[in-house]
Design a protein around this nucleic acid. Structure first.
Lengths: 254, 254
DNA sequence: ACCATCTCCTTATAGCGTAAAGTGACCGGG
DNA sequence: CCCGGTCACTTTACGCTATAAGGAGATGGT
């Protein structure tokens, strides 16, 4: 369900992204009862609540008391709407440079973490054809400002920027997917894991001999029962991974 | 389009994964003309060629000269088929420990890179409810063997393992998505980028002043015309990111 | 007042996973 | 040797998706 930038009329989409909707001048025909902004807001609400799979033109229209087709007066198609949604929510991101690049990168990473948990559908928008809206570009520029105090050369900065993004997105995706799985199947992480490991032992006897290292890392985990299993797993991996990555950056800093 | 493990009868799926199909004993009724193995093979071929979005029960059935419904004699549903496909292709992965952990991790990473470019649909299978098939677990155990010579404590190993996976998957996803976009839109990376940057300049004058750091990193790129733009971008980011991460691991090694 | 124009609706199409029911081939027991 | 139970496979159908096409009705400029 990865989706690309609108292909119908990129110029139109870019104008909507950068100039906002055209000023309403008096014209024949009934007065519009919706607006691009209202549609974006409703669509974000639907996507936040129902996920990317639940984001349908019908659902957005219904949230606004209209039919699906009514939306096509305001946006070219679903891909354009998604571009607008994507750039819109990037306005929530504000992390900027701190004197200490390490503190700055850490703050940036946690802001992103929260952001992707708040808007899981954003992870399903492809980065292969970036939207290039103002809010997305603003947030990219700010990440570069955050990294600047480390004094890395340009090619390394680009690589590190991508890597940080992949790390947060990958870990956040695990949390999002496990929450969705728990909701859709009615089975919590713990219930799922308990059932699966029982089956695994049954069907694969001699697990400990065949997988000594998996058994080793698994047995060395401290489990906090107050947090769903996969969420804790992903969050701790994120923290550790971020620390290792920061150490790697430090090697090349200054 | 992220998909989870089969939920209908996990025990059945686990048996298929670990024991293979049951031995065929003579029974009334017409002889089967298909097999789970043949269906998996055909489904992988369809998914490799058409992507996750093109993987439909109808398409797989057609590839085998049958209807979609014929498959349901062999697999419980599409989710179970996907689990079987997922574990099956993990049999292609063979990277194992080398004396030098750095060389070992590098070899592992590039094997994964090629793997995800060969099977783009694998990136759309969620890690929140792992399949837990033998081939997937074998490859996880081997990654742990690759990392062992670095002598990291167990919690760090888990974090690093996830981080390496997120890095390869994230970068490979960009390549896969850009190839798919080029195929579906008939517009190469270069054509797309050229058109979009022209629109960007038109709609956002003063780009250089508003985005000095983006302008800086962009102008410091060497572009090799023989490789599609986004692919080169992703591959170079992957190389650089991997190097930085290895440096970070080295800080904690021994 | 009229008409061009615009918003919004209804209808229709092709494709998805899969439930339900029908067809006919095959094997073991009488 | 044939018959009844069983199984492979097909057809049909349902509700879901994005969106093309065309119609209804409201509005502002002339």
């Amino acid at each position: 369900m990865v989706v690309f930038a609108a292909q119908g009329d990129p110029r139109r989409t870019m104008a909507l992204l950068w100039r906002g909707p055209d000023a309403a001048q008096a014209r024949p025909g009934p007065r519009p009862t919706l607006s691009v902004a209202a549609i974006i807001e409703a669509a974000v609400a639907v996507a936040d609540a129902e996920g990317m799979a639940g984001l349908s033109m019908r659902a957005v229209g219904e949230a606004l008391g209209r039919t699906a087709m009514a939306l096509y007066t305001y946006v070219a198609d679903k891909a354009e709407l998604l571009d607008l949604m994507y750039d819109h929510v990037h306005g929530e991101l504000v992390a900027d440079a701190l004197d200490d690049w390490r503190a700055g990168v850490t703050a940036w990473a946690w802001e992103r973490w929260e952001f992707y948990l708040r808007h899981p559908w954003v992870l399903h928008v492809s980065m292969a054809r970036p939207v290039l809206g103002p809010k997305e570009l603003d947030s990219a520029e700010r990440l570069l400002r955050v990294l600047r105090p480390a004094g890395l050369p340009a090619p390394v900065v680009v690589g590190v920027m991508s890597e940080l993004t992949y790390l947060v997105q990958g870990a956040a995706a695990v949390v999002n997917d496990s929450r969705r799985a728990a909701r859709e199947t009615g089975q919590s992480d713990e219930e799922w894991w308990y059932a699966r490991s029982a089956e695994l032992i049954e069907v694969a006897p001699g697990f400990g001999e065949r997988y000594p290292l998996l058994t080793w890392v698994q047995s060395n985990k401290e489990i906090n029962e107050s947090e769903p299993y996969m969420e804790q797993e992903a969050r701790v991996s994120f923290e550790v991974g971020l620390g290792v990555l920061l150490d790697g950056i430090a090697v090349r800093a200054n």
